[in-house]
Structures are given as structure tokens and as C-alpha cells.
């Protein structure tokens, strides 16, 4: 969210906003697929895997998925700490901050799913004032930058849809917390609505970014959103990016909590290990790897590595969808 515009603009230029819209639609489709699986299964990813591929192969796939989720958590956490180090405290060591942030994660996740959802809700509501900040740079923007539309080839668009869709990741966690929703079938419209809002928000951010920066300049800027916040000046406060970075601690919390919760829950379901124990273990791994990633280039490498794997998830969900339904049909005939 703080830097995705740059990758998008590198491939699709001024048409990057279309990539956001397109990937938003793709995500809608995926949410529909996930719901169609879950509504039949009434379980979660682990039971779907077991149903489709059998017990052991299914569990193996789930384990791989959980491992990947853990790596994603680390990326999110490390990326945030890097931002803090670059923008606020250059001499801050990685591990004390990681330790404190993971302590919050432990506190949240160990308090149960109710608190996790609470954090998800409040972490959206409380920093929602950040949306207003995207209207301020408009004063210095030139919306001519968005024209002409449709000036990029299909491959360029596809590439940027790939990058854009990755910033939507998080919806697939539905595969884990579905059984915890009170009336899961009715929640589908909320999932779609949420996705729509996310798409709109990303669209706003991308459009403002494209108008605010010249494309050549945008390619040089690593965190365009923070650069945009820099221009905000209020009568009582200047340099909004510091407040932005601070608020981001709240914004990135729910995704980490939700992922760690899902991972520990998955482990419990598969291996019957108490969630509290696996939680400590998972957080410890997060902490160690996070502290080991020290340089910008290594973090970058790690990031791109994760994004590339992340792309497989997007291919994997339709694949699982097809497999699951074939399996379901076969079973139906068998009986």
C-alpha cells in the first residue's frame, strides 16, 4: 500500500489504475470461488484439502500453505520496520521493535478470535482519517498525467495486474476463519463489499499518485505514498509522513494478527498442537528471521521472492476450486 504504485507504474504507466480495477474484479471472482467451496464444505482450507487430495497429501499442502503465510507475515513486519528505520529512526535496531510488535501480536492472538476481529475492525476504523490525506496532494497534481488511457499493450497490462493483485492478498485468509463467522453464508456479500471498498481505496491512491508524480520521477521514488504525505501541511502540524508511518503500525497489525492466528489454528487442526504453544513457536520464527534480514537489498530480494510465490496462490485458488468440484461430483456419483 505504501509502495505498490511504483511497481504498477513501472509496467503500465498511466494506465496503472486500470490494473487495480481489473485485479479487483479478479479478486471478486476468487472470493466467489472460495465461498462456493466453503459453503459446500462448511469447513476450512484444511478440511477442503483433506477432502480433495486425501488426508496426508492434503495436510502436506496445508502445511506448505501455512509456511508461506508465515513468510508473508515476516515480509509485512520487516517491510514496516524498514520504513520506520528509513523514515524515523535510522539507528533503531530491528529486533527490539520486532519483539515489541510481536508481543502485541501475541497479546491479540492469544486473546481469541473475538479480539482478532476486533483489532481488524478498529485498525480499519481508527486510521481511516488517512483517506482524507490522499485528497491534499491533489493541489499539486496534474490529472493530465493519467491521459491517454489504454495506451499499453495487453502483456504490460497483464504484468501490472499481477503486481496489483498481490496488494489485495489477505482475502484468502477467509479459508481459515470461515467456520468462525456466525452466519457464514450470509457473509459473502460483506466479503464482496469489503473487496469493493479496498479496490476503491487503491484506485484513489493510484490515481492521486499518478497525477502527483511525473512518471520518470515516480520510478525513482521507493515509497510514493509517504512522499505524498510529505507535502501535507496543516496549521498545527507539518510533515505528515511521520504521522502516516506511525499510523501504519495500526494499519498493518490486523493482517499480521490474522495470518498468525490462521497459521496457529491450521496447525492445531492438523497436528492437534495447542494453539497457544504453536503461537509462541510461530512468533519466535518470525522474530528470528525478521532480525536476520538486515540490509535493504536482502529485504528486497526476500520481498520479490515472496511476491513470486504469492502469485502461485492466485493460480492455486482456481486450481483448487476445479479440483474440489470435480472431486465433489465424483463422490456424488459414487454414492
Amino acid at each position: 500500500m505504501l509502495s505498490f504504485q511504483r511497481q504498477l507504474a513501472k509496467t503500465a504507466g498511466q494506465d496503472a489504475w486500470m490494473a487495480v480495477v481489473l485485479s479487483g474484479m479478479i479478486i471478486h471472482l476468487m472470493i466467489w470461488m472460495i465461498y462456493s467451496m466453503l459453503n459446500k464444505d462448511k469447513g476450512d482450507l484444511i478440511s477442503i484439502h483433506q477432502q480433495t487430495f486425501g488426508k496426508w497429501p492434503g495436510n502436506l499442502l496445508s502445511t506448505i500453505y501455512i509456511l508461506f503465510m508465515l513468510l508473508q507475515t515476516i515480509t509485512v513486519l520487516r517491510a514496516y520496520i524498514e520504513i520506520v528505520q528509513v523514515w524515523m529512526f535510522p539507528v533503531l535496531k530491528t529486533w527490539p521493535l520486532a519483539l515489541v510488535l510481536l508481543l502485541i501480536v501475541y497479546y491479540v492472538v492469544s486473546s481469541g478470535f473475538r479480539v482478532v476481529t476486533g483489532v481488524c475492525f478498529l485498525a480499519v476504523v481508527v486510521p481511516s482519517y488517512l483517506i482524507l490525506t490522499f485528497f491534499v496532494p491533489i493541489e499539486f497534481s496534474n490529472f493530465r498525467n493519467l491521459l491517454p488511457v489504454f495506451d499499453h499493450s495487453v502483456t504490460q497490462m497483464a504484468l501490472s495486474v499481477k503486481t496489483a493483485s498481490l496488494s489485495f492478498s489477505g482475502f484468502e485468509l477467509l479459508l481459515f476463519y470461515y467456520p468462525f463467522i456466525k452466519q457464514p453464508e450470509k457473509s459473502q456479500k460483506w466479503a464482496h463489499l469489503g473487496n469493493l471498498l479496498t479496490t476503491l481505496l487503491y484506485l484513489l491512491v493510484v490515481v492521486v499518485t499518478l497525477a502527483f508524480f511525473d512518471q520518470e520521477y515516480l520510478k525513482r521514488v521507493i515509497w510514493p505514498t509517504l512522499m505524498m504525505w510529505k507535502i501535507i501541511e496543516l496549521p498545527f502540524v507539518e510533515r505528515f509522513e511521520i504521522i502516516g508511518v506511525t499510523s501504519w503500525a495500526i494499519v498493518m497489525m490486523p493482517i499480521i494478527c490474522l495470518m498468525v492466528w490462521s497459521a496457529s489454528r491450521g496447525i492445531k487442526k492438523m497436528y492437534k498442537i495447542k494453539q497457544r504453544k504453536s503461537l509462541v513457536f510461530l512468533l519466535f520464527i518470525c522474530f528470528v528471521i525478521c532480525s536476520l534480514l538486515s540490509e535493504r537489498e536482502i529485504i528486497q530480494q526476500f520481498n520479490s521472492w515472496i511476491t513470486n510465490i504469492g502469485f502461485f496462490i492466485f493460480l492455486y485458488i482456481p486450481f483448487l476450486f476445479v479440483c474440489y468440484h470435480i472431486r465433489f461430483k465424483l463422490k456424488g456419483k459414487g454414492q
Binding site: 529512526f89 533503531l92 535496531k93 527490539p96 521493535l97 519483539l99 515489541v100
Partner: peptide, 16 residues
């Protein structure tokens, strides 16, 4: 553990 986290944050997490 909590004391350790607080301790390490204060002693190793100091910034200029």
C-alpha cells in the same frame, strides 16, 4: 518474558 521484552526495548531499542 514480558519483563524481558520491556527491558530489551528500553536498553537495546534506544534511538538517538
Amino acid at each position: 518474558m514480558i519483563c524481558f521484552v520491556i527491558f530489551s526495548a528500553i536498553f537495546f531499542g534506544r534511538v538517538t
